[in-house]
Computed example of a mutant assay.
Amino acid sequence: MHSALVIGGVGFLGSHVVERLVDDGNYAVTGSIVDATSILNAVEELKPLVVLHTASPVHGLPAYIYYEVNETGTRNVINACRAAGVKKLIYTSSTGVVWTGAEFNGVTEDHVPFPSKGYDAYHHTKGLGERLILSAEGRDGMQTVILRPCGMTGERDKQLIWRLAEVYAKKQHNVQIGDNTNLVDYAYVGNVAHAHILACTKLISEPDLVSGQTFFITNGEPRPQWDFARLVWKGLGDDGKGRIIQIPRLVGLIMAVFAEAFCRITGSSTQFTAFSVRFLTGTQWYNINKARNILGYTPDVPLEEGIQRTVKWWKQTGLAQHELQKMRKEM
């Protein structure tokens, strides 16, 4: 029996990783990874064979939080592993650490250079975390694996499904920016969790095969950007008969620039930014053959089925949680 410590085990992806580990070994969930003492105590007490670092803040927070968690927190995890003699560490990054707005048509891990600066604080600091993991590789016998999942959805998703459900509730789902010819990747969270278990198993049984390696993890089903959203809205009740209002990409960029300028003047905020327009209209899908061939990764749950599972969870549980959170913010 192998022991595994999942850092971020109560989070979206982390909770699915924990579920996958239950039948194979022990797991534990720790607190703030910003607190170096807390991390060290947890690792020293549990002495896991492998640590899976899945913790990360949600999108839309102040930049300093990402630096504290993704950079400082990752450094704390590495130091705790070294101090406790834990040699195996898996780090959850993101496909977005290498995307800077270029057209990515099935790129591989070795095909795209690592940018000096990511396109936002979340992905920039995820990249800083990757650099720390890579610098730890081989030191004192440390063996590491980096997984880069794309955007995920699934049960307990408190970001993507929440945003799409709000758009649908506000009856804004018939507005489309761009011509919807750009292919993008999404993944069902259970498949990404499965990739973590495969990486864990390989790092234990065949460390020379995977140590120091980075893997893109997606569902392997790139599709037009707005098709994904419309599958979600279909599950929420959209009949697909409404007229689509298409805003050209250039017009969308100009509108976003004015929206951001207005927010700077008034001190308000907006999610309609130039970056969001570039993201919605850019091609961004990744080749996962390396994960297939080395980890033995197969996305068992098709994306459309994953969306159906997400929407079912949303109707049964997620919506109520969302409304409760809104009420607490308003109090």
Rank of each mutant, 00 (worst) to 15 (best):
A63S: 14
A63I: 08
A63E: 15
A63G: 03
Y64N: 11
Y64D: 15
I65E: 10
E68K: 13
V69M: 05
N70T: 07
N70Y: 10
N70I: 03
E71W: 12
T72Q: 11
G73F: 07
G73T: 05
G73M: 03
G73Y: 02
T74H: 07
T74V: 09
T74E: 05
T74N: 06
T74D: 08
R75Q: 06
R75L: 10
R75S: 02
R75C: 04
N76A: 02
V77N: 05
V77D: 11
V77A: 03
I78T: 04
A80W: 15
R82P: 03
R82N: 02
A83R: 14
A84R: 04
A84T: 06
G85A: 07
G85Q: 04
K87P: 04
K88I: 01
L89F: 10
L89V: 02
I90Q: 06
I90A: 06
I90Y: 14
I90G: 09
I90V: 15
Y91S: 06
Y91N: 05
T92D: 03
T92V: 11
S93F: 12
S94A: 13
G96S: 15
V97M: 00
V98S: 01
G101I: 03
A102Y: 11
A102C: 01
A102G: 11
E103W: 13
N105I: 06
G106Y: 12
G106K: 09
V107R: 15
T108G: 14
T108F: 09
E109N: 07
D110F: 07
D110W: 08
D110G: 09
H111P: 02
P113N: 05
P113V: 00
P113I: 01
F114D: 04
F114H: 15
P115N: 04
